[in-house]
Design a protein around this nucleic acid. Structure first.
Length: 484
RNA sequence: GGCCCCGUCGUCUAGCCAGGUCCAGGACACCGGGUUUUCAUCCCGGCAACACGGGUUCGAAUCCCGUCGGGGUCACCA
């Protein structure tokens, strides 16, 4: 089993999807899971993209047994380092007449396509160079004319293969183009490199995306031409945008980097991907990678393209965050966010339990936690006076709170809450609005972690300071008429 | 357009291969309600689908055919 991405940009969510199922088969069958870098298109090569693929796969826990950065018996695992192999293979095909040299220029091919399009005929190479006499080939070669190698696809007959998921699939050979195998720059195309490598690396199951179905007959023909037994082909459904087109950058976040930055847990992303197109026998929806491997069954794969629903991923991520052991949650927060949190790990640990049940992604951490790290002085004074109350009542509540905070012993949430409730009752106020006044004073926002727990974390001194600041803010607002 | 793949609630799906136990179950989202100091959690309830038409059969979401719909692919990209 293998996954074979191209280093042409950010690591793609589809790569993770395909890698997941390949690895699952490898784990279940005791086979090797290989990472192969398909970098045969130097024009699309992106510096650093390869390293990001390594990192993304590791981040997800989809480690590979063999690959460019871990080595293995079939090294090298970068196609750009295996060009001799492909040339040799192409020579073999040339020698046996299974392929031929094509000297057509890109211009002629473009004109050919244009003409076919104009006449509303199916596009494809017209086979001109296939009929070239040996002497003519020699002459062109001697003249240094650039050439490619094309597969000599049989003109008649049918090529069939068994898709491990969809059953028998067949194509008329007359509909298959004489695919270019070796480009004029000496690099192989996907088709050649893929088949040669899959054979060389003893890949038993080619598990890839559905978009490859229509080129599979070319691959089957290649295996036949080489006299090699073809692997089992399994075409996974394509991940889709909401409009059901294949998932794309424009309509969906597809970069694994993005998911990491947004604070999605690898566990959740993997869990979500596993849910797309495969189901657990007991319909369980939340499960670990290990559980997935344990229950994975090719027979439970689906063939219909699932729409990638970020909302469900967010829900799942929230579930995973809530299930994290407290210490682990702290570790993830620290790993995800740098300063100012990293400087105060002990404070993070105390704040964490208040935030953990409230967020769906690690990126949301600051929205609840920042009041403990950055203070809260820049809120609007009007927030201190929620709807049914007036400024006078707000002031009284804050003053009562000051007294309670000053004397509470110990300075703990339960004590503070009990005394606050009593005081509020005496003032003849409802707890909801009353606590809202204090919440704003303490956290600077109407949405916050629990009030008294927050006070406890802040400590007596800071609590008193914030209450005092709120009172001052209220007074200023009243004086300038900007309050309510 | 040719070829190929696919078609159960808005979305992810169970059920289909081995027809009845399915007037189709679960989850997300959404809408109500409850718990609650805000938010979130948690609990309860609701909305909502077998694409359509034939056929086979005592009986079809499940088998067959057709139609329609969606997608993929038609590069010296992968």
């Amino acid at each position: 089993m293998r996954v074979a991405p191209s280093p042409t940009g950010d690591p793609h969510v589809g790569t993770a999807y395909v890698a997941l199922f390949n690895k699952a088969v490898a784990v279940r069958t005791g086979g090797q899971f290989i990472l192969r870098i398909e970098d045969t298109d130097r024009s699309r090569y992106v510096e650093g993209a390869e390293r990001m693929i390594f990192e993304a796969l590791r981040w997800l826990g989809l480690d590979y047994d063999e690959g460019p950065d871990v080595g293995g018996p079939c090294a090298p695992y970068r196609q750009s380092e295996r060009t001799a192999l492909y040339r040799e293979a192409a020579e073999r095909l040339l020698a046996t007449g299974k392929a031929y040299r094509c000297f057509c220029t890109p211009e002629r091919l473009a004109e050919l396509r244009a003409a076919q399009r104009r006449d509303r005929r199916p596009p494809g190479y017209d086979g001109r160079c296939r009929a070239l006499a040996a002497a003519e080939v020699e002459r062109l070669l001697a003249a240094g004319t650039p050439w490619t190698v094309r597969l000599a696809v049989p003109r008649t007959g049918t090529t069939r293969f068994e898709d491990g998921l969809r059953g028998p699939i067949q194509f008329e050979n007359s509909e298959i183009d004489d695919q270019v195998l070796l480009k004029s720059d000496g690099h192989p195309t996907y088709h050649l490199a893929n088949v040669v490598d899959d054979h060389a690396m003893r890949i038993t199951h080619v598990i890839r995306a559905e978009e490859w179905i229509s080129s599979t007959p070319k691959h089957v023909l290649l295996y036949e031409a080489f006299g090699w037994p073809p692997p089992v082909f399994v075409h996974l459904p394509l991940l889709r945008n909401a409009d059901r087109s294949k998932i794309s950058k424009r309509k969906n976040p597809v970069s694994l980097l993005w998911y990491r930055e947004q604070g999605f847990l690898p566990e959740a992303l993997l869990n979500f991907l596993a849910l797309m197109g495969h189901s657990m026998p007991d319909e369980r929806e939340i499960f670990s990678l290990e559980e997935f491997y344990a229950e994975f069954d090719p027979g439970r794969l689906k063939t219909t393209g699932p729409v990638f629903d970020l909302a469900k991923l967010q829900w799942l991520n929230g579930e995973w965050i809530r299930r994290l052991p407290p210490q682990e949650f702290v570790r993830r927060v620290l790993a995800h966010h740098g300063e100012p949190y990293a400087r105060r790990p002990e404070l993070v640990a105390r704040v964490a339990p208040l935030v953990q049940p409230r967020i769906r992604t690690l990126a949301e951490w600051p929205s609840y936690a920042d009041t403990f790290f950055r203070g809260c002085s820049d809120y609007e004074a009007a927030l201190l006076v929620p709807k049914p109350l007036d400024a006078a009542m707000a002031r009284q509540l804050l003053e009562q709170a000051q007294q309670i905070a000053a004397r509470a012993e110990p300075f703990a949430a339960a004590v503070l809450e009990q005394q606050a409730r009593e005081a509020v009752a005496k003032l003849g106020c409802k707890v909801g609005p009353a606590f809202m006044v204090l919440r704003v004073a303490i956290t600077g926002a109407r949405v916050s972690p629990p009030l008294f727990e927050s006070m406890e974390v802040l400590g007596r001194e800071e609590t008193l300071a914030r209450l005092q600041a709120a009172l001052a803010k209220l007074a200023t607002a009243e004086a300038t008429g900007t309050g309510s």
